[in-house]
Amino acid sequence: MITHTDIKSAYDRIKTSGTVRKSPLEYSSYLSNLTGAEVYLKCDHLQPTGSFKVRGATNKLLMLSNEDKARGVVTASSGNHGMATALGASKLGIQATIYVPENASGTKLDGIKAMGATVIKVPGDCLLAEKTARDVARETQKPYISPYNDEDVIMGQGTVGVEIHDDCPDVSAVFASVGGGGLIGGTGLYLKGIGSNTEIIGAWPEVAQSMNLCLEKGEIYEPTEQETLSDGTAGGVEEGALTFPICQTVLDKRLTVTEDEIRHAMRLIADKERWMIEGAAGVAVAAFLKTATQFQGKKVAIILCGRNITLEKFLSAVS
């Protein structure tokens, strides 16, 4: 099991990488006045790739042997993880190949290519792109960089917890959206590991809550999901995912929010904080707003996990 010491080591490793920033923990006057809580926004949407994913990918890449770095790396992602791997690899002089589904957004693919990675389209969906990438990695003996099912990646994502604790050691609760579970799992492991009493609260869209339903059932399976604004958290959980038992251990509360609640949260952050955030970040804000009365007089951190949404999609969501 990953320890808080492992995560602190990951933090010390990535903070000098030139790829990952210590993101600000910004006090929100508006949300604090609105709810009676003392609300802080953990601004990982301000990372160079627009997402927290750069933490885990960078830590994994830094921990590769020289031989593995020379071989190059492989992953599958048309979004935040793909951009994170591409940027981290380019900084280290590692060739990265990113497999993407054929219907991947052209804007996101342009972003990945601009960071120096090779992009290969797979005629199929995200699952087929991932299977193809894993097969190629195995056949070519190149490291596969998982978006969440890897201890080194989870350690990197958990460095969010290090920064939150450094800036606000008496925070009562941390809210984060949950996809594969690396962000909330790593953050929770760190905060619990150092003896913090901080509540770890995971949030999902009602229409796409695979990890939540797996946790309810006590086993990994493939629940049906519908389309959601929170595309960054959508998708199933890998069989044998390391994050599943971690989430079982560290999550104190699990919440779901509607698409309208996500839209409202995205609009609120744009209007009051002047930031355009993606749906996954909106999920965490919406979950806090839904339960804000429970945190009056307490310090709360909400992780804004990403900003990678097109202007057209954002305007359509919040209009």
Rank of each mutant, 00 (worst) to 15 (best):
E216F: 11
G56P: 14
L229I: 14
Q296F: 02
K108T: 15
I200L: 11
V122M: 11
G79L: 07
G279H: 06
V207S: 08
K299S: 08
L41M: 11
E67H: 05
Y190T: 01
G193N: 04
Q296V: 14
V318E: 09
Y144H: 02
H81Y: 03
L31P: 09
I184C: 01
A89K: 00
D68G: 06
G179F: 10
A270Q: 06
K69T: 09
I309K: 01
G240Q: 03
L62S: 07
F244V: 04
D150C: 08
V162A: 02
T85Y: 00
I220S: 01
S210W: 10
V171Y: 07
P205A: 14
E261F: 08
K121C: 09
E259S: 03
E216C: 13
I303Q: 00
L34V: 10
C305G: 04
G179M: 09
H165T: 13
C43S: 05
T132P: 09
I220K: 07
Y148N: 00
T49M: 03
A270D: 08
V39D: 02
S17V: 13
R55Q: 12
V122A: 09
I269T: 04
L128M: 15
A114C: 06
D170V: 12
T310I: 10
A129R: 02
Q248E: 15
I94P: 04
K42G: 04
L289N: 01
T107P: 03
L315A: 11
S9Q: 15
K253L: 10
G93Q: 05
K192Q: 09
G93A: 08
L304H: 00
A37W: 02
E26A: 12
M266W: 09
N80M: 04
V171D: 08
E38A: 01
G236F: 10
T35M: 03
L255I: 15
H45T: 06
T233E: 06
G195C: 11
I194F: 11
I184P: 01
T85W: 00
V100S: 06
I112M: 00
C305D: 01
V20T: 11
D150E: 15
A57T: 14
Q209H: 14
E278I: 12
Q294D: 00
A270V: 13
D167H: 13
S177G: 15
V136T: 13
G158W: 09
A57H: 08
E219H: 13
A114S: 10
A203N: 07
S105P: 14
Y30P: 02
N103C: 10
C305S: 12
E199I: 09
D166E: 15
N66I: 11
G36V: 12
A284D: 05
L64F: 04
R274E: 01
A317R: 01
V153N: 01
A292S: 15
A70E: 15
N59R: 07
L189G: 07
P169M: 09
A301K: 00
R274G: 02
G72D: 10
P48C: 03
A270P: 05
E312K: 01
N308L: 07
S28N: 05
R254M: 15
D125Y: 04
N103V: 13
Y190M: 05
V178C: 09
N149C: 06
F52P: 07
I164V: 15
S230M: 06
S78H: 07
E38M: 06
L62K: 09
T85G: 03
G50K: 10
D125L: 11
L215R: 02
G116F: 12
K290T: 05
